[in-house]
Design a protein around this nucleic acid. Structure first.
Lengths: 193, 193
DNA sequence: TGAATTTGTTAATCTAGTTTATTTTTTTAT
DNA sequence: ATAAAAAAATAAACTAGATTAACAAATTCA
C-alpha cells in the first residue's frame, strides 16, 4: 500500500500504536501528480504539506524579470510545501512543481493541527525536522557567502548526488544561483583534472 | 525582575499557569554578558538557547581566509544560539558574540527537553517559532539570488531599521555578503536622490 | 585634551560571473 | 528511424561587486 513507505519513515523516529497509525491514516490522503504538474502555484494558498513517496519536486520563485529561482528540491522521503503560505494560509510567492511523476501523502493545516493534538510525538518529530531544515538553510546562506560558485557546486554534488542525476543541469544552476552557461563552464573546467 | 520581559513574551503566544511559570523559572537561568564577550565560540559546544532580554548579538562564521560572515543579528525579544551545535550538542562552526552588553534567559538542552515534556504548549510555541525562522531564512536565500546588493540593503533597512542603527556599517555589509567599501558606495549613491 | 583605535570614504584596478548569440548534443514523440 | 523540441556547450563582450591602498571621521579612553 502507498502508506507503508510513509509509515516506515515515521517509524524511524517515533513509535506509534495501532490506534495512532489509524488516526494518522484517517487524517492524511494519498495523491498522484503527473510530471510537470503543479502542487502549489504562486498566488494560490498552499493547502497541504506533502510527504513524497516517489518522484521529485522543485520549489521555486519567479522574479519580476521572469527568472526562475529554485529554493529547494525534494525527493522520496522528504517533505515538500511552501511553508510560508502553509503556516499562514495566505497566497504563496512560490511554486511547487513535479519534475517527475510524484506520489505524495498530504495533509491540510487542520489535519496537521489535529495530528499534533492527538499525537504529541508527531509534533516533536516535526519540531526536530524544522530544526534540521533551519540548520541546513543557514548553512546554505553561509556557503553562498564564503564559497566560490565552483565550490558551491562541489558541495551540492557531494550532498545531493542523487538529485543531480535526476534533474537537468540548468535547474542545478538555478538552485546554485548561477547561470546555466557558467555552470557548464565550471563542469568543463572540473573535467580537465 | 529579569524574568518579566521573558514571561511577557511567552504570554503573547500562550497562557501559562502559575505552576508552569514556576517550572519554567526553575529550568532557566539569567545571565549577563559584557560587550565583546562570546556566548558561543567556534569549536565549543553551544550549551544554551538564549532569549535576549536586552542587548544585541551577532551570530557569525569565520571562513578559511579569516573573513567574518554574519549569519544573523539578535536583539531584545529574539532568540540567539547556534542551533546546529545546540541540537546535536557537538562543536560549533559559529560564534555568538555580544555587540552590546547583553542580558539573557538561557536554558540547556536538558532544560529544554524537560520544559517540552512538562509544558507541551512550549513545544508548540517553539515549533511555530522554528517555522517562522525557516521561512525568513528561505526568503533570505531568494533575496540573495534575485536582488542586487542595493535592493538587498534596502530590504534589510526596511526590515531591521532598529538593528541598522545599533551596529557598525561594516557588520551590515558582512550580513549582506558584500564588502564594506561597496556598501559605502551604495549609500552615497542612495544619498544623491 | 589629545593620542590611539575603530569606523567609514574614495578611487583605481581587477575578476568572477552575466549576457547575448550561435552551435551541438540529447531527449521525446511519432 | 527521424523530425522537433529540450538541454548543454562554446565563446566574445560586458558589469556588478571585490581588492588594494590611502585618507578622513568618529569614538574611546588615559
Amino acid at each position: 500500500m502507498h502508506y507503508s513507505s510513509f509509515l516506515n519513515y515515521i517509524n524511524k523516529y517515533i513509535d506509534l500504536t495501532e490506534k495512532e497509525i489509524a488516526f494518522l491514516r484517517s487524517n492524511t490522503n494519498y495523491k498522484k501528480y503527473l510530471k510537470g504538474h503543479y502542487i502549489v502555484q504562486q498566488g494560490a494558498v498552499c493547502k497541504h504539506t506533502n510527504f513524497i513517496i516517489s518522484g521529485c519536486t522543485k520549489n521555486f520563485y519567479v522574479d519580476q524579470q521572469g527568472q526562475e529561482h529554485i529554493v529547494t528540491f525534494a525527493i522520496e522521503n522528504w517533505w515538500s510545501a511552501d511553508l510560508s503560505s502553509f503556516i499562514t494560509q495566505t497566497p504563496s510567492d512560490f511554486n511547487v512543481k513535479c519534475i517527475e511523476a510524484t506520489e505524495v501523502i498530504q495533509f491540510t493545516y487542520q489535519n496537521q493541527d489535529e495530528i499534533f493534538q492527538n499525537i504529541p510525538k508527531m509534533e516533536t518529530l516535526f519540531r526536530k525536522l524544522l530544526e534540521k531544515a533551519l540548520v541546513s538553510s543557514q548553512k546554505r546562506i553561509v556557503n553562498n557567502f564564503s564559497l566560490s560558485a565552483k565550490d558551491q557546486y562541489l558541495y551540492f554534488k557531494k550532498q545531493f548526488s542523487t538529485i543531480e542525476q535526476r534533474v537537468p543541469q540548468y535547474m542545478v544552476a538555478s538552485y546554485l544561483g548561477i547561470t546555466k552557461e557558467f555552470l557548464s563552464k565550471i563542469k568543463t573546467e572540473l573535467a580537465k583534472d
